[in-house]
């Protein structure tokens, strides 16, 4: 639901990912890390809703 809402206000789909990984799935964890990193890499840096004053 939050994903759909974020897309509605102009976030790229894929910025937010949810996955189920159980404790015995080390390989799945590793592959998810790679997958998510590649996806975000292809999307480029996030500019929306960035708090500039830090």
């Amino acid at each position: 639901m939050l994903k759909r809402l974020l897309e509605y206000v102009g976030f790229e789909p894929g910025r937010l990912t949810a996955r189920w990984i159980s404790a015995s799935e080390g390989a799945k964890f590793a592959s998810t890390m790679d997958e998510v990193t590649d996806k975000i890499k292809s999307l480029g840096p996030n500019t929306k809703m960035r708090d500039e004053i830090l």
Binding site: L16, T17, R19, L54
Partner: peptide, 19 residues
């Protein structure tokens, strides 16, 4: 949901929630 928004706000390019 506030965690996710906060992460985006403070400089995250992506957020992964996994359980």
């Amino acid at each position: 949901p506030a965690f996710v928004l906060r992460a985006f706000q403070k400089g995250a390019d992506g957020v992964l929630v996994s359980g």
